[in-house]
């Protein structure tokens, strides 16, 4: 059997039926089966997303991408809802703006978003979210011991948060769940969507829901194989290379000084593309392009973390 990339010469021509809809009054035509998000992006309409990633099945849990669809009782998640003919979508109505503002506010008041990236800061500004109106943050600690169906209320006047101690139990990466928005991406990447390892899952429920290994055992006691695919999909920096974490802790992390070099992994013959993030002549992080045919952003432990030899060679040559 030969495989031909779609669009390549000789590829079978597949005709996807086109669907017409309107977005904010503008007529749009997209292939059948597209999501509202894809339709919005096709005309350059920005829809904020947090739990969405091109390479994963949408779980539509963050709800920041909600849009108004004529005839729907509630708002609908743009990331997962397929378009249908004649659909009338509004992405910037008062209703939409209120819900997006509140989602951002609820997250920002309960989660440390300091490493979530510039888009999040911009959206918080754009939608006018005011996380401080929920009160000063209450520090929680024993989140991993929370039991379903019970909780201690926080002190009156404070706002509960997901803050807890950083988990550092291995040499490769750090888990800082104070920054976790529970987007489920790491669980998907670790499990059926990429790695098939299932070292982590969502545990507990409600505000106490959390990402956890079984019984919260340290990673080395879990099924983790250190592929780091969870780090690659984490939108908030809750999962981070030890190198990045330590540089940030010392105030030395500076993306402006970093160079990203694309190369091919030297280990096996699969041909995974690597992006080496280099700061001050040291590899500080390794990623793989989401749109790469082979990896779709995923790597194994060797490609992701096996870069020390490069520095050893480098050091030797000097």
């Amino acid at each position: 059997m030969t495989t031909v990339a779609p669009g390549a010469p000789g590829a079978p021509v597949t005709l996807r039926r086109q669907v017409e809809l309107t977005i904010d009054g503008q007529a749009v035509t997209v292939p059948e089966g597209s999501t509202i998000l894809e339709a919005c992006r096709s005309i350059g309409t920005e829809v904020p997303t947090l739990c969405y990633l091109e390479t994963l099945t949408p779980v539509n849990v963050c709800r920041v991408c909600v849009v108004e669809v004529e005839g729907s009782r509630t708002l609908v998640p743009a990331c997962s809802r397929p378009v249908s003919g004649g659909m009338e979508v509004r992405t910037d109505s008062e209703r939409v703006r209120t819900s997006r503002r509140m989602v951002l506010e609820l997250l920002a008041s309960s989660v440390d978003l300091s490493t979530a990236g510039g888009d999040v800061d911009r959206w918080i500004e754009t939608y006018g979210a005011r996380p401080e109106r929920h009160g000063p943050p209450a520090l929680s600690t024993e989140r991993d011991r929370a039991r379903a169906g019970e909780h201690e209320p926080v002190a009156v006047g404070t706002a509960a948060t997901v803050s807890q101690a950083v988990k550092r139990d291995n040499d490769q990466y750090v888990r800082d769940y104070s920054k976790c928005i529970l987007c489920y991406k790491c669980v998907e990447a670790c499990g059926e969507e990429a790695q098939d390892t299932f070292a982590i899952a969502v545990a507990g429920r409600g505000f106490d829901a959390r990402i956890s290994t079984e019984m919260d055992v340290p990673l080395p006691d879990s099924a983790c194989v250190y592929c780091g695919n969870c780090i690659a999909v984490c939108p908030t920096g809750a999962l981070m290379f030890v190198t990045e974490h330590d540089l940030r802790a010392r105030g030395e992390w500076d993306e402006g000084r970093q160079q990203v070099t694309r190369t091919v992994c030297p280990y096996c013959g699969v041909g995974c593309n690597l992006e080496l993030h280099v700061q001050d002549d040291r590899i500080v992080k390794v990623t793989s392009p989401l749109d790469h045919d082979v990896t779709r952003g995923n790597l194994c432990v060797k490609g992701r973390f096996g870069f020390e030899f490069a520095e050893a060679l480098d050091g030797g040559s000097r």
Binding site: C62, S99, V103, L106, L107, P153, A160, V202, G206, D208
Partner: peptide
């Protein structure tokens, strides 16, 4: 607050916040 499954943000954090606001109102603070 105890029975939300915790999947989506509006309910997971919203039920927590609702409990807090109500607590403040009842306490007169």
């Amino acid at each position: 607050r105890d029975e939300s499954c915790g999947q989506c943000v509006p309910c997971r954090v919203g039920t927590q916040r609702q409990e807090e606001v109500l607590g403040r109102l009842v306490a007169g603070r």
